[in-house]
Amino acid sequence: MPVTVEIPKEKWTGKVREVTLGATAAAGGTRKKTVTVGGESTLPFLTFEGEMPNPPVVALEVQDAYPDDWSALLKEVWGDTLHDPAAWAQKAEEYGADIIALKLQSAHPEGGNTDAAHAVETVKSVLATTGLPLIIYGPGQPEKDNEVLVAVAEAAQGERIALGNCEEKNYRTIVAAALANDHLVVNKTPIDVNLAKQLNILVNDMRLDLDRMLMDPTTGALGYGLEYSYSVMERLRIAALTGDSMTQQPMICTVGEEAWRAKESKVNEGVPAAWGDWARRSTNWEVITATMLIESGANIVVLRHPDSVKLVKEAIASLRAH
């Protein structure tokens, strides 16, 4: 006689907030489509005990300055488009990205130090060539981040762009720009549950609605701290499902940036033969980092290689199929 087996089920009381990126013409923007993430009332893909209404999505990273320090493998696959953010974004859409993550790298004071007007031109050109929603990152230097993101927020009013990064020491100006122009923000904190929660509270205190915030708990790549991100995200997601309101933001991970910084992906000179074929190893590095973080709760992964987009999207589809 088969034994009767009673499956233990979790009774979660909370759920992740739904956040919508992008606005169509009807909603005051120009995007051809919008992307909604979050909304799940269960751990990733465990739909036997809760809902996961929106699948995790994939963004491709685009920069407005030629990424000279990128791996030769990325330079090869993207070719000349790397010189033109608008063409690059268009290509990214063709490769199947759901979102374009545009980094205004040229504004960095140690790089091109381009100004706000230049950033606005870049964003307008990208908005013109792609119908996808945008995430826009400043160059990562506080003063320049504020300068270019404020200008971009005004120029793209109503597009529901996610502006990043808001960090503990530098969030007020960016949040104000998002409030004034109907955008979203990305709250970034260094691999810690309480810091993530705290920043969500601070940003919410400025009256930015919670359905206009993503959180980035900081990504560690495979072999370079992945397990820290993995566990902090599992803890954040469990807190969200347990009903802790200020941890219920959808999570975004900058996988491509971290995975392609790893020596294993970046270079192939003087590495052990046991590391295997460079191209396949690098793809595995980005894809495994991405899927591991998706299984620990990521709602958006930002990638760099087109092959990774295809593989990660297939993995998401098969994790949802049943």
């Binding site: 495979l222 072999g223 590391w275 295997g276």
Partner: peptide, 17 residues
């Protein structure tokens, strides 16, 4: 395939730390 084995061994080391 070492190009797959190496990332998987690395992942196992990460998760089981």
């Amino acid at each position: 395939d070492p190009a797959t084995i190496y990332p998987l061994l690395t992942l196992r080391l990460n998760i089981y730390t």
